[in-house]
Measured scan of single mutants.
Amino acid sequence: MSGIALSRLAQERKAWRKDHPFGFVAVPTKNPDGTMNLMNWECAIPGKKGTPWEGGLFKLRMLFKDDYPSSPPKCKFEPPLFHPNVYPSGTVCLSILEEDKDWRPAITIKQILLGIQELLNEPNIQDPAQAEAYTIYCQNRVEYEKRVRAQAKKFAPS
């Protein structure tokens, strides 16, 4: 494992614990031996107030490669969400998460999670990743928002 990646992720964890947006979660997972795995984080993004996503808490896994922060983490909703920019596998399609697009090593975990929260309610229809959600979003916004509200209710924190 890269010392650069681990040191950056340790800084990220410290900064997150000191200050993070209300309702968001970002925690490194534990290895079988109980030690912390900084390369694999369990996160959760709350649906934004005043949107059909409100009330939901959407679980996301963030996986970092050894060359982080040169390369972005892979962000994957578990379980996958109904959304035009979420692949059926759950992987998020967002330009700041793509090395050859808008990724920059200075982007923080907090910025990534806030960017994904923004994307939930403002899909990028130029870059669809899920045919069904994309089609319904474009053709029947009322039905799309109904499905999103049902999903938010399903993923409401207990």
Rank of each mutant, 00 (worst) to 15 (best):
Y87Q: 05
V27I: 12
L38I: 05
F24R: 02
S2P: 09
I109R: 03
V148F: 01
N124G: 06
G55Y: 15
K76I: 13
E122P: 02
F22Y: 08
P73G: 00
M62I: 10
K154V: 13
K18S: 09
F77T: 03
H20C: 05
Q139C: 10
K48L: 13
T91I: 14
W53D: 04
V27Q: 01
R17N: 01
K154S: 14
E145T: 13
L9C: 09
Q151Y: 08
L114F: 12
E99K: 11
R61E: 10
K154H: 09
Y68G: 02
Y137E: 02
T29D: 10
P21C: 03
N121K: 10
G50D: 06
K30G: 09
K154T: 11
K146Y: 12
S89K: 11
A10Y: 00
L60K: 05
D19A: 12
E132W: 05
P88T: 15
F82M: 05
E145W: 07
I4L: 08
M39W: 09
Y144E: 01
G3D: 14
P80D: 12
N40K: 11
E99G: 14
F77V: 03
Y134W: 07
N85V: 06
S2I: 08
A26S: 10
P46S: 07
R149N: 09
S95P: 01
P88A: 14
K59A: 09
G90Q: 04
A133S: 11
L6V: 11
E78Q: 11
C93L: 04
Y137K: 06
G56F: 07
R17S: 05
M39P: 06
E42H: 07
G56D: 01
E98S: 15
A131S: 12
A26V: 01
L6M: 15
R149K: 12
Y87F: 14
G47R: 01
G56K: 06
G34F: 04
R149P: 05
K59S: 12
R61F: 11
V92I: 07
M36T: 03
Y144W: 06
P52I: 11
D33K: 02
P157Y: 09
N40T: 09
A5P: 08
L60E: 03
T91K: 05
I96P: 01
T35K: 00
A5C: 15
G50F: 11
I125D: 05
K110F: 04
L38T: 09
V25K: 09
S7H: 07
E12S: 04
L120H: 03
L81K: 03
